[in-house]
Design a protein around this nucleic acid. Structure first.
Length: 474
RNA sequence: GGAGAGGUGGCCGAGUGGUUGAAGGCAACGGUCUUGAAAACCGUCGUGCCCGCAAGGGUACCGCAGGUUCGAAUCCUGUCCUCUCCGCCA
């Protein structure tokens, strides 16, 4: 979520930023937000002022009714006068009357004490009703405002190049040699089944399209990759987490998946639990509603989880192979930082992701996203891609984002800046390290041999009993 | 799944329907004292929202949501969660 103060201060600037994001539908919400924000503050003032008067008068009423040491005529006089003042809306005067600061000119009245007090009570009740009305209006406007705020994307960092299409993304010089073959390298959807380690039919039989079964070396290789990543991340100072694979709805809002990406997640409707589309959702909310100490920042976390995505939006794309499934394994790196350090942390996070590819001897390159390709919650984003020789494409294996306070504001993760009296939102960063199936693709395709076997990267061998190659199926 | 107990500030723990944002204690922070430290003593010590340049003022929050009442941490209803015992289970 954005800071509403920013929108209040310069809505036109915010709108220009959103135009750069190529998110036309969000644009209209800015004007709506400005309008609702004004309405909200006006209503809040009315409500709170009324409540302040009410609090005072109720207290005074209690004492008056107790009537300790007061002449009955005074009580009646005060009650009658106060009732009139309340009904004319002059609450300050009513308060001075009730508290006896105007006993000098109390009206004469022949109503009984009980009647006088009951009349005043009626007037106070009417104030209460008016307060309820105002409070309901505030709640209503609040809800509308919230809804609009939740649909606004994060704004790009000033260093991000303005561009509308992913074709304008900045591509860094690739590292590593693209492998060369003296035969035609197979794509993994042919190679995997040929090796007997990847079974598409079995996946379809069990769960339908976009599911697959890994077996033997395939399953082992995946497990090895996960262990290898986690060990690497631990060496870089990340604390390993094991988290629930399903979470409450609020967590999806906290991580800025909802409301916009509701259609990508799976739901257990009975239990009202949602399956993680990424571990990022769980980790973002790890410190939800907490106020952290600046001395504890930055916090680095890493977690391996399966990720479940309905992929309705991507129907028809990447239907071959294991590049885009409904269920896949991912190791996610995550950082909670101060605003001052978050961009330096983004660089090191991206480097950490690239390091994984380097250690696996995969050709790797970094992309810097232009504004139009940033997505919903990133203020700045790097993608990491590795080359896959069989399908002849650069596969996105990591996406490293600084969301600044966008998620932190939703999940209410704050900290006390050193020596400050006010809390501040932390900045959060996330980066895959790395999407397992796609790395699997690259390893298989790049390391395939003429005889149909596949060489295992040296870095993975310790995790596979020292074996050097996946043998061809005889 | 059955039975019971309970949810109050960073933690522990009081709280009769009206000077309670909430006693007391611990922790933390600042200070006095001390060669230094400890102890002792004094002080500070929640968050959101609204107004304000600020100082400050107002308001809300005692799991959550409703209700009763002129007025609710306190009474009522619902709900969620935690704990204990039993059953079942990897």
């Amino acid at each position: 979520m954005l800071d509403i103060a920013l929108i209040r201060k310069d809505p036109e600037w915010v709108k220009q930023q959103i135009r750069n994001l190529n998110d036309e539908v969000a644009l209209a919400r800015v004007d709506e937000i400005v309008r609702l924000d004004e309405q909200r503050r006006d209503l809040i003032q009315q409500r709170d002022n009324l409540q302040a008067s009410r609090n005072k008068l109720n207290k005074g009423f209690g004492r008056l009714r107790g009537g300790k040491g007061l002449d009955e005529a005074v009580i009646i006089g005060r009650a009658v006068a106060a009732k009139e003042a309340v009904e004319s809306g002059d609450y300050d005067r009513a308060d001075t009357i009730v508290t006896g600061q105007q006993d000098g000119d109390l009206p004469q009245s022949d109503v009984s004490k009980d009647d006088a007090l009951n009349n005043l009570m009626d007037a106070l009740r009417a104030m209460g009703n008016r307060h309820s009305e105002l409070d309901n209006k505030v709640k209503d406007v609040d809800a509308q405002l919230e809804e609009n705020m939740l649909w606004l994307p994060n704004l790009p960092h000033e260093s991000v190049k303005v561009g509308m299409s992913d074709e304008e993304n900045i591509i860094y010089t690739p590292e590593g040699e693209l492998p060369e073959f003296d035969f035609e390298p197979l794509p993994h959807w042919d190679l995997g089944p040929q090796l007997g380690i990847l079974d598409f039919e079995a996946g379809v039989k069990l769960a339908g399209s976009r599911f697959y079964v890994l077996q033997g070396w395939g399953a082992r290789l995946q497990r090895a990759l996960i262990s290898f990543y986690l060990d690497m991340a631990r060496e870089k100072g990340f604390t390993e987490l094991y988290v629930p694979y399903m979470v409450k709805e609020d967590m999806l809002y906290g991580a800025a998946q909802f409301p916009k990406f509701r259609d990508v997640v799976y739901l257990d409707a009975d239990a009202e639990l949602y399956f993680l589309p990424t571990a990022e959702v769980a980790i973002t909310n790890l410190h939800r509603d907490e106020i952290l100490n600046e001395a504890d920042l930055p916090l680095y976390y890493v977690a391996h989880t399966p990720c479940f995505r309905r992929e309705r939006a991507a129907a028809g794309r990447d239907t071959r192979g294991i590049k885009r499934g409904h269920q896949f394994e991912k190791v996610e790196m995550y950082k909670f930082t101060t605003p001052e350090t978050s961009y330096a942390e983004l660089e090191s996070l991206t480097e950490a992701a690239m390091d994984v590819a380097r250690r696996l001897e995969l050709p790797v390159r970094r992309l810097e996203q232009v504004t139009g390709d940033l997505g919903f919650s990133a203020a700045k984003k790097y993608d990491v891609e590795v080359w896959a020789a069989g399908c002849q494409e650069w596969l996105e294996v990591s996406s490293c984002s600084n969301t600044e306070a966008f998620q932190a504001r939703r999940a209410k993760v704050r900290y006390y800046p050193e020596g400050e009296k006010k809390t501040q939102f932390v900045h959060t960063l996330n980066g895959s390290g790395l999407a397992v199936p796609r790395v699997l693709i690259a390893i298989l395709e790049n390391n395939q041999q003429a005889d149909g076997s596949v060489i295992i990267p040296k870095a993975l061998r310790p995790y596979l009993g020292g074996e050097e190659r996946i043998p061809a199926q005889s």
